[in-house]
């Protein structure tokens, strides 16, 4: 592994280039991820944001190489992790990488919890696997208590089983397990959706610490732009399997130009200060991923749709790191 400045913050850890993923079901082919590219440096956090069905989880599963065997396929592109293309790795190699270097917090906590093992033992198990400091059993047990407290669960409950916890508590236990692994890349798929704001703040602080202390890079999949604002260095907005806008957090939150979809997304957030009876979702639904429209995938819902948008897929308009795939900004060229 001859990557020179390997531990330098910001040096590249993950490069995704033109990734395409499909699902083949009995009836149709689902075009879930359609040519996305992004890069993540060490100690960096990128937020993947987008409506349900945008392809966020699919992207994460592709990186982990955990797409459903019979139906999910990477159709093209590269996923370079520490310089090596994960797409070309064998499953046994991937198992090792998943154990040691990349870990994922799944959207559904029960995917990663063993229903018949006390939760404390599950955290302990993952600490034991990653025990590079050769801590004694006693110290490891202390660490279990610490991790549980950190996610707001009383250590005295470590002998209880997953079904004895609430939804949000299960999610927190999964987070504790993922953190116990001390991965280099942590993919968190909606890690705080079931958590109230006070516990969410605690968990996010914990993740920030992990980043500072261990230099962990993170992909934060979330629909909560508030969480993105607090934790992410970079943001990629996904729509129908594509990145429609990406850039630094400043670009996406404070930049002048935006993709109309990004504007809609910000507009649909319930506003606590405002008195309204109705909320303002973006009209219409995401297109059917088995039958994507020609041109820009957002055009059927776009208030600023032009003729060209119905015919031609827009290229990226770029300004520094900020990319926007919209004809509004590229039509001059």
């Amino acid at each position: 592994m001859a990557i020179p400045d390997k531990n330098e913050p910001g040096s590249s850890l993950l490069q995704i280039q033109d990734l395409n993923v499909i699902y083949k079901t009995d009836e149709a082919t689902v075009y879930a991820v359609n040519g996305i590219s992004f890069e993540l440096g060490r100690k960096e956090t990128i937020g993947l944001v987008g409506e349900t069905g945008a392809g966020k989880t699919t992207t994460a599963l592709a990186i982990m190489r955990l797409l459903p065997e019979e139906t999910g396929f990477i159709k093209g592109g590269e996923i370079r992790f520490q310089g090596e293309d994960l797409v070309k790795k064998s499953q046994p190699d991937m198992r090792e990488i998943r154990g040691a270097k990349i870990s994922m917090i799944f959207q559904d906590p029960m995917t990663s919890l063993n229903p018949i093992m006390p939760v404390g033992d599950q955290i302990l198990e993952s600490l034991e696997i990653h025990n590079s400091e050769n801590l004694s059993k006693e110290d490891l047990n202390k660490r279990v208590d610490e991790l549980l407290s950190l996610v707001g669960i009383l250590p005295q409950r470590k002998k209880d089983f997953p079904h004895q916890f609430s939804g949000g508590m299960k999610q927190r236990i999964v987070i504790a397990i993922a953190l116990a692994c001390r991965p280099e890349l942590l993919i968190a798929d909606e890690p705080t959706t079931a958590l109230d704001v006070t516990i969410q703040a605690q968990v996010l602080e914990l993740m920030r610490e992990l980043k500072e202390k261990l230099g962990t890079s993170m992909i934060m999949i979330t629909h909560d732009l508030g969480v993105v604002a607090e934790t992410c260095d970079k943001v990629a907005i996904m729509y129908a399997g594509r990145i429609v806008e990406a850039g630094s957090a400043e670009d996406v939150f404070e930049g002048e130009k935006h993709h109309p979809y990004t504007v809609g997304l910000f507009g649909s957030i319930p506003n606590l200060e405002e008195e309204t009876d109705r909320l303002h979702p973006i009209d219409g639904l995401m297109p059917d991923p088995t039958d994507l429209p020609p041109g820009c995938p957002f055009h059927p819902r776009c208030k600023q749709c032009m003729d060209i948008c119905r015919e031609k897929m827009p290229e990226f308009y770029t300004s520094g790191e900020h990319r926007i795939a919209c004809h509004l900004y590229t039509k001059g060229d």
Partner: peptide, 11 residues
């Protein structure tokens, strides 16, 4: 709606 993104939440 907790597991849904804002736009779908609103819907």
């Amino acid at each position: 709606v907790s597991a849904l993104d804002v736009s779908i939440q609103a819907q």
